[in-house]
Design a protein around this nucleic acid. Sequence first.
DNA 1: GACAGTCTACCTACCGATAGGTAGATAATA
DNA 2: TATTATCTACCTATCGGTAGGTAGACTGTC
Lengths: 189, 189
Amino acid sequence: MDTKSRALALGQSYLQTLGYNGFSFQTIADRLHIKKASLHYYFASKEELGLALISSYQQDFETWAEGLKSSSGPKKLNSFIEIFLEFSQDKNKICPQGVLCSDFNTLPPSLQKKLLSFHENQKAWLQKMLQDGIRNGEFRRDLPISATADFILSSLQGGVQMARLRKDFSIIKKIGHCLHDFLKIPPPS
Amino acid sequence: MDTKSRALALGQSYLQTLGYNGFSFQTIADRLHIKKASLHYYFASKEELGLALISSYQQDFETWAEGLKSSSGPKKLNSFIEIFLEFSQDKNKICPQGVLCSDFNTLPPSLQKKLLSFHENQKAWLQKMLQDGIRNGEFRRDLPISATADFILSSLQGGVQMARLRKDFSIIKKIGHCLHDFLKIPPPS
DNA sequence: GACAGTCTACCTACCGATAGGTAGATAATA
DNA sequence: TATTATCTACCTATCGGTAGGTAGACTGTC
């Protein structure tokens, strides 16, 4: 892996463990054993790095969604929950949206905008998943689509944060069970 | 209100809008029209200020809970949801736990510990509310108490963050409706 | 094959601003 | 006079960012 990719990966890791204001170019440069100035060769500013980080998350999500596109609604939901579980299991990371929501008012406008569009993408995916699932009887029929998408997202986003606080990622699984109950589908095997 | 109380109130506001690493003694001092050094007269360090902030939140919560102690389960739940709604309506604030969870790994250990105990207090209150409510038939009987408390907390904690992102605090109300549906109680009038 | 020019990936050394924090003087009040 | 509340003036460390340089690989031309 080249330096730029390694910097990006480290940036994601630091973002999800320390927050946007909790790491610096220095933090990343030290781990790469290069000088801070050299990092600016790849990313002109922290804002640019931040944009690249969100782009990378967005790309990952699209690839992930592509791989699931012919799965059932419940399977999609479980895989979605698993994303958060995996974050939590990996150094008690929280989700990128959660971090950036917390730091939102300290972010440059370009990052705020990109974060919002990332969120909207993800919510749209959830809504489609729910809509399809309702249409073919996988979920209860009286589900309020938009509110349910928000409910799923917010409970998981809050969940990974509580999991960090209590150092107990099993919280995510339990939230998953509650969501299954809410959607009226059996819990995953 | 004296300087110390005003500083504390400003600290809470900044914490909930900018994050722990998003404001400084300077930020508060400027708003109070005093010098940064004068703030150190009241709070020896930022760590101490942070501890005072959590203490203050904890005190507020206890007073709030005391005033509700003879209310019904659903009434308690609604009031709890309202706390988050009020945060969100006030400058898109997020809840203190949410901010501090995000910044958790950059906090001094004393703050981490105090935050955890604050969280445990709040969760205990929720669990008791649910237990009492189930006992006298206000909520469905098959509720998993601990998981449900986590579910309520995490969905609201995530909810205020999403509300900030979308600048739309009505999300909190919708999450409230979902929670009512989950608990099998009618939505509030 | 030799040379010039260019590009990549780093470097040293600095900038102004701000962070958290301290020492010691000073003004107001009881 | 002692205490409380504030000040000036400073400290060290770090922040994001920049200027300018360089070793070595690559490319094109004669």
